[in-house]
Write a protein that binds this DNA or RNA. Structure first.
Length: 566
RNA sequence: GACUCGGUAGCUCAGCAGGAUAGAGCAACGGCCUUCUAAGCCGUCGGUCGGGGGUUCGAAUCCCUUCCGAGUCGCCA
């Protein structure tokens, strides 16, 4: 809303100035950092420079010009401070518009994504490995981005590209057949399979030929060896079952669980096309695509003829393009795979497809423990399920301390705990590394998930006491600073969602919700809401109901749970 | 070694299509519940924006250089 006013002002000013001086004069329109200075400001330095006139004259001239614009009807004051022109909005008029807008059920939506499809590849855990906190990031970042895109009108296809293929299965199958305990695997599949995997690596250190043995088994699996295939299928099934428990806790769903193996029979076509277009080159026995000097070549086929990660990703990409005809495809995968996705794009470009530009690697930082990367190979792993359970327990302790009479304590504490973990991850820009620290994640004070939930609950408890009427409003009540801060913040919701999309970063929304909640809590501390005057009470209730709607929707978009009491 | 990403308050982070005195939260300290949930609010303390150059009327923001940390660099995914 405020953005629209800014843009209109800039365009009108530029047009008038252009007509007058017969040259392009770019105008900067921004919001001052300090709200006391005004709502909109224009630094005139650049105009001074192009016009080569004294600063004072230019300031006065621009102020006169502003008064001639149509948007100026939104302004109540225009002041000059040095080389800045500070404009204040007409608070009553602006509030009036906003309160009306804010009541719309689809407030914040836009037609940005109308008719467009975006495929998101996220979560994608590796079969036969526990669902670690390492997968947490991909899962919740991808889920949140998907939700935000849907809010903006995009059709979203959510794909869990399971890591259910690759040499690792050669290793696991080798280990299972040679020294695996079948019964133990039945009882506790993932845990035992990980043990076998770790054990394999220890053995392989002494006997490097085991690595070749594993590659050989994988190669046969790829060719359809029935014994290996049966084992593979079993491992996949038991793993997926475990993952579904976690997805249920996180409330995450997918449209497809087709993993790498699904593309097993679709890779030859890729190899063929690369060959046809003369892009494939033999190098030390392996087949590569040369990508020039800026990038190492992409390895398409190993010297034993079996395929690699990028081959499968190419097959998956083309399959998705033909199946969904996407406008964009997003890969929510860690920073460490940056090169891989650059190569993927480069190969698609080499093949002559324009849509290489629509491929986006949504990279994110590592989950660190004591400043170091968590590693599967050393078996040092923290299960996400345990983390979520622990977070819920901490929440329960808190409730017992703060509100012991609360009903459904255990259910609510689960919602708080899980949401706390989600919010802790999303509040920081995704490319940052995050240190894994449960105590920090579930800190209930400050910029946290519980803070947002608590704010929403506070509003709910007021709203539930009485009906209200948004037609009966005194707009003069919004002119005070702590009220108008809220109005302005509500006005930013739409652009916040769009920026979250542009940056593919839910943190933009997360930070915004913190600001909104904080302004509300200030308002709440200073204003009594349930006053006896009908009009004043209606006004306040209407305002806070809009705030709650945004908070609740925002939290839902992030993947958090909304609660009514806590 | 090459490339990529990061270095802002004791800690966790915003700000980075250049703009007005660099902002939050945590921690520390001090206030505020006979009023709608104090998981809150208000205040105090705390910063050579890693260092050094440059461009500019103006640099945390752009360029160069340097130091520190992380990631990646052909048969793992």
């Amino acid at each position: 809303m405020i953005n629209t006013i800014k843009t209109d002002l800039r365009i009108e000013l530029e047009n008038i100035l252009k007509e007058k001086y017969n040259q392009e004069i770019p105008v900067v329109v921004e919001e001052p950092k300090n709200a006391d200075l005004g709502d909109i400001s224009i630094p005139v330095f650049s105009i001074v420079k192009t016009l080569r006139k004294p600063l004072n004259l230019v300031v006065d001239e621009v102020i006169d010009t502003i008064k001639k614009t149509k948007v100026s009807e939104n302004f109540s004051a225009i002041e000059k401070v040095g080389g800045f022109i500070n404009i204040s909005l007409n608070r009553v008029a602006f509030s009036k518009k906003l309160i009306k807008e804010g009541q719309r059920l689809d407030y914040g939506s836009s037609n940005l994504g109308k008719g467009k499809t975006i495929v998101i590849d996220y979560s994608s855990p590796n079969i036969a490995k526990p669902f670690s906190v390492g997968h947490l990031r991909s899962t919740i970042i991808g889920h949140a981005i998907g939700n935000i895109l849907e809010k903006l009108g995009y059709k979203v296809v959510r794909i869990n590209h399971l890591g259910d293929f690759g040499t690792q299965f050669g290793k696991i199958i080798y280990a299972y057949l040679n020294y695996g305990d079948k019964e133990k695997v039945e009882e506790n599949p993932i845990e035992e399979l990980v043990k076998l995997y770790v054990e394999f690596h220890e053995l392989a250190k002494e006997n490097p030929e085991l690595e070749d043995k594993a590659r050989e088994i994988f190669k046969e699996l790829e060719l359809g060896n029935p014994e290996y295939y049966k084992l593979w299928e079993h491992f996949r099934e038991v793993s997926l079952k475990e993952y579904m428990k976690v997805y249920e806790m996180l409330n995450v769903k997918f449209d497809s669980y087709d993993g790498e193996a699904f593309y097993n029979d679709k890779m030859q076509a890729v190899v063929d096309e690369l060959t046809e277009k003369s892009l494939l080159k033999k190098d030390s026995g392996a087949m590569i695509v040369d990508l020039g000097e800026s990038m190492p070549p992409a390895l398409i086929q190993k010297s034993d003829g079996s395929t690699l990660y990028i081959t499968r990703d190419l097959a998956a990409l083309f399959y998705r393009k033909t199946t969904y005809n996407f406008d964009e495809v997003l890969y929510v995968v860690g920073n460490e795979q940056k090169l891989h996705f650059e190569q993927l794009k480069a190969v698609v470009k080499e093949l002559g497809y324009e849509f290489y530009q629509d491929i986006h690697h949504i990279n994110f930082g590592l989950v660190l423990q004591d400043g170091k990367k968590m590693s599967t190979r050393k078996g040092k792993i923290v299960k996400l399920e345990d983390v979520l359970n622990e977070a819920s327990e901490l929440s329960l302790n808190y409730i017992n301390e703060k509100n012991p009479e609360l009903e459904n304590k255990s259910e609510i504490s689960k919602k708080i705990g899980v949401s706390a973990v989600i919010f802790n991850d999303l509040k920081n820009h995704r490319t940052n590394d995050i240190e894994f620290d449960l105590a920090d994640m579930v800190n209930f004070i400050g910029q946290t998930g519980p803070y947002l939930q608590y704010t929403s609950v506070r509003i709910s408890s007021v709203l539930d006491t009485m009906e209200f009427n948004c037609e009966d409003i005194n707009y003069n009540l919004f002119t005070g600073n702590h009220s108008f801060d809220l109005i302005k913040t509500i006005a930013q919701y739409e652009e916040v969602l769009q920026r979250a999309k542009e940056e593919y970063s839910p943190s933009v929304l997360a930070k915004y919700l913190l600001v909104l909640a904080s302004y509300f809590n200030t308002f709440y501390a200073k204003e009594k809401i349930m006053v006896t005057d009908d009009k004043e009470r209606n006004t306040k209730l209407c305002l806070i109901s809009i705030i709650r709607n945004i908070l609740d929707e925002g939290m839902t978009l992030l993947g958090m749970q909304v609660i009514k009491k806590m």
